[in-house]
């Protein structure tokens, strides 16, 4: 089968999976309606294993279908924005759709099976073993989907073969280095706002204004504050030791590539839509640190992956890296 053929098969298979799961989720409860009570038990007490929540039959059929429809719509939108028009579906999408579909299908099957042949939802059987089984199968399917996509990507030949990038004159007796710094004020503002929210919630909880469950909401805010702050600025430097990229005002964490780990360097004009958004982006072909659209320094590592970072004056950095590498291998 040709490469293009294999890709379109994957795409059609994915569409088929999405539609099939949707139909099954919505059709399963009505199909068994003659043997089900009027209201279905849909929630179980984690401690006792007894049902403690119910939904009418139509809601039990439509609710999971709606969740699935939203999930597929989000994945489709993300794929559209990421611009993978070639038909190759990235690993995270296959993993997410596989895991989500199996989870919802397993949940729906568990609910129908537990309610089967019971006159009232209070008498519905336990579902613990089914839920555990579903989790295991869903995780396996998700992992398989991810691995399959990684394999497919690994088999596709890398586009843009490493060519002679820009170079720079390096006279003897000179140490040439390059530094750059980029920051995104919007991300810094988001970090400040989430940090203030975290402090406000924590102070409110300490003062006894809110209950402890609300105080737990401070944790995600604090986490978001730190993560966004770490992605809001980036420093890059090229020296005889290689390329160093550090994140955030603390210049930690950071990544380092020695010259022998870098195959070639080039500049590219990238937009956040192309790499999947702002911040530290991972995709099938590599990693990009995206703080603003425009000029990016992109290196091809010895392992064949790309790493990009949005910095000004990337032309000089690429030229210096290529020249230093050439000097290093000579």
């Amino acid at each position: 089968m040709t490469d293009r053929g294999r890709r379109s098969t994957t795409a059609w298979g994915t569409v088929g999976w999405c539609v099939g799961v949707l139909v099954l989720l919505a059709a399963l409860p009505p199909a068994a309606s003659s043997r089900l009570p009027e209201r279905l038990a849909t929630h179980w007490n984690a401690g006792s294993g007894r049902p403690d929540g119910s939904m009418p039959l139509w809601a039990a059929a439509l609710f999971p279908a709606l969740v699935w429809a939203v999930l597929t719509a989000v994945v489709a939108l993300a794929l559209r924005r990421a611009g993978t028009g070639s038909g190759a579906i990235p690993g995270w999408a296959l993993a997410g759709l596989g895991f989500g579909g199996v989870m919802l299908l397993g949940g729906q099957t568990s609910i129908v099976r537990a309610n089967l042949d019971h006159a009232d939802w209070h008498d519905a059987g336990p579902v613990t073993s089914w839920v555990v089984g579903t989790l295991v199968v869903a995780a396996t399917v998700g992992a398989l989907g991810f691995l399959a996509a990684q394999r497919a990507l690994a088999q596709t030949p890398a586009q843009a073969p490493p060519q002679d990038g820009p170079a720079l004159d390096l006279p003897a007796g000179q140490r040439v280095v390059w530094l750059a710094h980029t920051s995104n004020p919007w991300l810094q503002a988001i970090s400040a706002v989430t940090g203030l929210l975290a402090i406000a919630v924590a102070v409110g909880a300490l003062a006894g204004l809110t209950d402890s469950p609300v105080a737990l909401a401070a944790t995600p805010f604090a986490l978001a504050c730190v993560l966004v702050l770490g992605c809001s600025s980036v420093q890059a430097r090229v020296t005889e030791r290689g390329l160093d990229v550090t994140f955030g005002p603390l210049r930690w964490p950071g990544r380092h590539w020695a010259l022998e780990d870098i195959e070639s360097a080039r500049t590219e004009n990238l937009t956040p839509a192309q790499v999947g958004g702002w911040g530290y982006r991972l995709s099938g072909l590599g990693t990009t640190v995206m703080l603003r659209g425009g000029e990016c320094l992109v290196i091809r590592t010895a392992r064949g992956k790309d790493f990009g970072v949005s910095v000004d004056d990337a032309e000089h950095a690429a030229a210096l890296l290529n020249s230093l590498s050439a000097q290093h291998t000579r």
Binding site: A172, G173, Q174, R175, V176, V177, W178, L179, A180, D313, H316, L320
Partner: peptide
Amino acid sequence: MLLRLDTASS
């Protein structure tokens, strides 16, 4: 920015 340090100079 690109910086050239003249290490040969005394």
